[in-house]
């Protein structure tokens, strides 16, 4: 859906769901994920539908991902950083892991 204007120079590497992904230094996590071509940023908590960024300026909250262990971060407002750990969100997380008797 999106391609680079020029080959990446000055790249940083972050981890997306455990896989290394290159990003332009200074860009947002949302831009990085769109370049990588992920089919969705998150699955909705209500129906599990796929969502990608819609507005890219912090209004729509469709780009929410987990960043460095904290959920529901706006990928379009967060800049990439070397070593950053990004996880796409799969619907509503369980409040507590089921306890094993």
């Amino acid at each position: 859906m999106f391609s680079d204007l020029a080959t990446l120079t000055d790249a940083v590497t972050l981890s997306v769901d455990g896989q290394p992904v290159k990003a332009r230094a200074g860009e947002t996590v949302a831009a990085c994920l769109l370049r990588a071509g992920v089919p969705y940023n998150r699955l909705t908590p209500v129906s599990g539908a796929r969502r990608l960024p819609y507005c890219m300026i912090g209004h729509c909250f469709e780009c929410l991902v987990e960043i460095d262990g904290i959920g529901n971060r706006q990928a379009c407002l967060t800049l990439v950083r070397e070593g950053m750990k990004v996880r796409r969100q799969a619907g509503a997380p369980p409040a507590l892991e089921p306890s094993v008797p």
Partner: peptide, 20 residues
């Protein structure tokens, strides 16, 4: 996924150097 606003695409151009 695949529906975006014009502003979003412009933002990706300016700040992501990404073209559709």
């Amino acid at each position: 996924p695949g529906v975006m606003t014009a502003g979003a695409v412009q933002t990706l151009l300016k700040a992501g150097h990404l073209k559709p």
